[in-house]
């Protein structure tokens, strides 16, 4: 059965075999550097040091705020 996540407003569907087991796994699949992203799940901040231990569930709304250098 396919499961979905809404990432920055866009719905993304994953086959069971592709389902990200954690926030860290999702960022790896999206090729996003963990050190430069703030993650929010259903309106709650998930701190970077908990990315690996935070599981994902079907239907969650995920906001990934990405930073690039310069200031």
């Amino acid at each position: 059965m396919n499961r979905t996540l809404t990432i920055n407003g866009s719905e993304k569907t994953f086959a069971d075999s592709q389902w990200p087991v954690s926030v860290a796994d999702l960022l790896g699949k999206l090729q996003i550097d963990q050190a430069t992203v703030v993650a929010e799940i259903d309106g709650q901040i998930v701190e970077r040091n908990r990315f690996s231990e935070t599981p994902l569930h079907h239907g969650q709304q995920i906001e990934l705020i990405r930073f690039v250098g310069g200031g």
Partner: peptide
């Protein structure tokens, strides 16, 4: 947040929000 480095921007944004 007026930092230069991306990881520092991440750090303060996460800290303030969390």
């Amino acid at each position: 947040e007026c930092f230069d480095r991306a990881d520092q921007k991440q750090m303060i944004t996460e800290t303030v929000l969390a």
